[in-house]
């Protein structure tokens, strides 16, 4: 199929989609008129039932915890997939030269970049840790915190060398941490089973004050495990992708 043919097929299909979409919108409640009832019910009961003031986290780590477990394993599988797809093949080492940039020097990291990124590493870790540990109180959680924690490692890469990034996050260790994070989430559910409750039910004491950091039972615990799983998964993925570009750089030096 030529590109122009493809464009025509797309225009016809897009027109059909638009017609059905508009037809469907006519029967829906308009924007700003949320009809309920699920969101309203959860908003009404979540705070007293889970002692978490962040209802989105309560949904993710309590009411839909089983779905979140699946979501976390999607990330786990994707990290494994990236590592598998980008593994070193035997013939690759021989052809890794890539002479395209031979006549150019690899520029050294400038002092300005190094200063700014070094200054940001500490605050980034603090913010990431804050987000991971405050899922039950405010808009945060393990997914957001994990990404920010992984960013701290990317800053290490920006500030210095890929070698330092690799030394700080050796693949075997990051792999193990990722597996521990993912497995512990599943284990929290199994602990509930052992106590005779349903899988992933909130078996820990809820604490007396909704909104306190040490409230909401298993929600902060699951958020913590999700946080370390997500940060390890993204450090692995970023490391694998960076390694692809840096094979070239090492060859040039």
């Amino acid at each position: 199929m030529t590109p122009s043919q493809r464009r025509w097929v797309f225009l016809v299909a897009g027109g059909g989609f638009l017609a059905f979409y508009l037809w469907g919108l006519v029967g829906l409640p308009g924007f700003g008129h949320y009809p309920g009832p699920y969101g309203d019910i959860i908003n009404a009961i979540a705070v007293s039932q889970t002692h978490a003031t962040a209802v989105v986290s309560a949904v993710n780590f309590e009411y839909r915890a089983f779905d979140t477990l699946g979501e976390e394993f999607i990330l786990f599988t994707a990290a494994t997939g990236v590592a598998t797809v980008l593994r070193h093949l035997r013939e690759e080492r021989d052809t890794s030269a890539m002479d395209e940039a031979m006549n150019r020097d690899v520029p050294a990291t400038s002092d300005a970049i190094r200063m700014v990124t070094l200054a940001f590493i500490g605050p980034t870790i603090v913010v990431g840790w804050y987000l991971t540990s405050h899922a039950q109180t405010s808009p945060s959680g393990g997914f957001q915190g994990g990404i920010v924690l992984a960013t701290a490692f990317v800053l290490v890469y920006l500030a210095g060398q890929f070698i330092v990034f690799k030394r700080l996050s050796p693949v075997a260790l990051t792999d193990a941490i990722e597996a521990i994070g993912a497995g512990s989430f599943a284990a929290v559910g199994i602990a509930a089973l052992a106590l005779g409750a349903a899988y992933l039910s909130n078996i820990l004491p809820l604490g007396s004050t909704p909104g306190a950091v040490n409230s909401a039972g298993t929600i902060p615990l699951i958020s913590f495990f999700v946080g370390i799983e997500v940060s390890a998964a993204f450090i692995l993925i970023i490391g694998e992708l960076l390694e692809q570009t840096l094979i070239v750089r090492e060859g040039n030096r």
């Binding site: 949320y34 969101g39 993710n60 979501e71 999607i74 990290a79 694998e240």
Partner: peptide
Amino acid sequence: VDPVVQALALTDVVVEAAVTALLLAFAV
């Protein structure tokens, strides 16, 4: 507002990041 769809949006973002990483690896 409805917290359920907000939680779903979070799921959506995570899956997108995972899928993007995998696709970029295939592109490499």
